[in-house]
Amino acid sequence: MSPLLVVAIAGLGTYLIRVSLIAVLGKVTIPPLGERALKLVAPTVLAAIAAQGVFTVDGGLRPFDVRHVAALIGGLVAWRTGSVAWTLVAGMGSLWLLGWLVPGW
């Protein structure tokens, strides 16, 4: 399948998700169990992607390196400040600094 078609289907599907309950307001309500599941989508999917980005490389487990440390620092800054910008500054900053200080990182 052509990449453009794949992107187009993903785009259409994403739009339909965005418009879903806005379009059907009054005709469909989400059952409580479904609502509980939807509320868990954000934390679980974000954790899964973040974990994959930090702990894996090329489909295998990433050996302990500077990224683990930099991600931990970024995570702590995210938790204390709640700021995306500071998280990026702290995470990228520590990645570069540690990479420069520690041989092999």
Partner: peptide, 12 residues
């Protein structure tokens, strides 16, 4: 590396 960081920042 900005990508997992961004996800971490949204995750928290």
């Amino acid at each position: 590396f900005a990508i997992p960081l961004m996800f971490t920042a949204m995750l928290v």
